[in-house]
Design a protein around this nucleic acid. Structure first.
Ligand SMILES: [Mn+2]
Ligand SMILES: [Mn+2]
Ligand SMILES: [Zn+2]
Ligand SMILES: [Zn+2]
Lengths: 138, 138
DNA sequence: AAGTATTTTAGAATAATTCTAATTTATGTT
DNA sequence: AACATAAATTAGAATTATTCTAAAATACTT
């Protein structure tokens, strides 16, 4: 199957809208990240995936792209494991199951967790995000 | 002020009860960790604190002790920052404010967050813990 | 097409953590 | 108390994820 021009165009526009230059490598990585459904991926995993598809991208660029995407709101960084960062292509409000043995993350839609009371942050502070991680021993 | 024998004895017994040999360095570290109120500390911070008090302990031992304490239930490991692990001396059920700028953690008592609905974990999985992190932009 | 800012890159550097293998220590047993 | 043995400590090397550097390539504006 030849690459869908529709997908390419959509990804191109998405980068543009985010204020990021649609370079060859960002385009390729964004397609890997966003073509499928929601994903939770590490830098190393994305690097390997790119290699498998013969996309020539340096590891530094992987990190640059992941951080650039995160800063411009295309990705969200998730910290559940002390060893490596996960990047989430689902940027809407939601939570996670974290399978401790496999290290896999699974989305939990926001409406499946009801938080009916939350404390007020100390004076001067603003809540930037509330993360719920349900750790599952598998 | 000479070290309180009461505290020393209590810490000694606590290690014993946890099935850990009360060695010189574990005793000293446990006192640093548990003498005061609840703390959230990194390996490096504990190492520096030990040095400041002329407690001679290698960095490897700091890591060994923190992990041993965690495995035996005396500490809890908290993952909020991709760069380093935090160890929590408060092992009762509770949650956290995380001040993104300073990297400081603050306890939120369990009863200040009401979670009235939680999803069922996938078949075969058991919830080992539900962590709520309220990220505060300060 | 030229000029400039941005991006990419290889490889070196850094930082947290873990490992190794030798030494020391704790504890149970004579 | 001395002894034996398992467990813990240690210095330093190794590992791993990530960041940095500075040079080359590319994107975008004129
Ligand atoms: Mn990062
Ligand atoms: Mn650990
Ligand atoms: Zn997600
Ligand atoms: Zn805490």
């Amino acid at each position: 199957m030849t690459p869908s021009p529709k997908t390419t165009k959509a990804v191109f526009d998405r980068l543009r809208a985010a204020g990021l230059r649609p370079t060859r490598q960002r385009l390729a990585l964004a397609k890997l990240l966003f073509a499928q459904g929601p994903r939770h991926i590490t830098a190393e995993a994305l690097f390997n995936e790119a290699k498998a598809r013969r996309i020539n991208v340096s590891l530094a660029t992987i990190y640059n792209a992941l951080h650039d995407f995160t800063e411009s709101g295309l990705l969200r960084e998730i910290t559940v494991d002390a060893n490596q960062s996960y990047f989430d292509t689902n940027i809407s409000a939601h939570h996670h199951f974290y399978f401790e043995k496999s290290g896999r993350l699974q989305d939990v839609p926001a409406d499946e967790i009801h938080i009916t009371q939350l404390p007020t942050p100390p004076k001067g502070g603003t809540i930037s995000r509330v993360d719920v991680v349900i750790r599952v021993a598998d």
